[in-house]
Design a protein around this nucleic acid. Structure first.
Lengths: 160, 160
DNA sequence: GCTTAATAGTTGCATATACAACTATCGTTG
DNA sequence: CAACGATAGTTGTATATGCAACTATTAAGC
């Protein structure tokens, strides 16, 4: 007998279920552990900055606007994350030749190497997190998370 | 044919799957929308602060240490969140009579009323997020998120 | 009882994000 | 081509978190 949504929501003052989603406990936990692991191994990066590098691995030489769209981050965050990445020489920030408003972000070789190192650590923690969970279940969970994200993205009141 | 974990992890440089978890896109999206909705309706609260109030609804008069454990937040965050809650008179911060190190946090009537108002908004967005997803699937996802969180909590290297 | 260790909470510093105001540049339209 | 609006990025302010150093108080061990 599984709970219906109304069972879940009708609990007196118990917002645990929805707050579990809102707070993203699992996400923030693995995020924290990863950032701690990077620091412990003297890898000068954060998971948030890695999101940018990962996007550049898939498609190099993106504009900041493109990176903002692809990583679901605000343009202000992008500016500051790239500031940090440039400082560490993981990317170059180059002015677009035909549009001086636009910056082109290019992965450096140092950046590529870093991604490979970080990838191993991420995989390690990902495996820890998913211990005892089948690949099928993981796939279900990922698809549901994506679906929820899409549901919210498609809200009328989300224009920015 | 579903993907195995190795299928997922072996992709060349594609960390999307694990980064989707790490970044908690769905969580941060609903979190953002909720905080925006609270502001739009002149409800002076954030989801993070609500996590504290929710815990107090379940068990009032907790110490900050207890709240830290129950909400998975660091003690520094607890201090500052309660500063904000006290300022808005949603809680009282009272010195423990027998242990002057400890503060007891008590929900005020204003705090209780606020939780009820916020609960409706949270439920609304929770329903939007889970549109087209069955109650059974939601339950699966929640249980998996809890399991992943537990997996990481039980790591040897997590002592603080 | 005194010393030491453990516990509870606060605070400073760094990172990240949301939001809004701002600058600079490009495109469109008359 | 001048004016207007759209677009790309930057920056200031506020909130939240992690982490480490710190104070204050209590508990434990001798």
């Amino acid at each position: 007998m599984s709970k219906t949504i109304d069972d879940i929501m009708s609990k007196t003052i118990d917002m645990d279920y929805s707050l579990y989603l809102v707070n993203g406990y699992a996400s923030s936990m693995i995020n924290k552990l990863l950032n701690r692991a990077f620091k412990a191994q003297n890898i000068d990066i954060t998971t948030e900055q890695l999101t940018i590098l990962n996007s550049l691995c898939k498609k190099d030489s993106q504009s900041q606007h493109s990176l903002s769209t692809n990583t679901f981050k605000g343009k202000g965050s992008i500016t500051r994350l790239i500031d940090a990445l440039v400082k560490n020489e993981y990317v170059h920030r180059i002015s677009h030749p035909n549009d001086r408003r636009t910056n082109i972000i290019k992965l450096t070789s140092k950046g590529s190497e870093l991604v490979e190192k970080a990838k191993n650590i991420i995989e390690k923690y990902y495996r820890k997190a998913t211990r005892g969970i089948s690949a099928k279940e993981i796939e279900i969970m990922q698809n549901l998370a994506i679906k929820m994200h899409d549901n919210l993205l498609n809200e009328d009141n989300i224009t920015k």
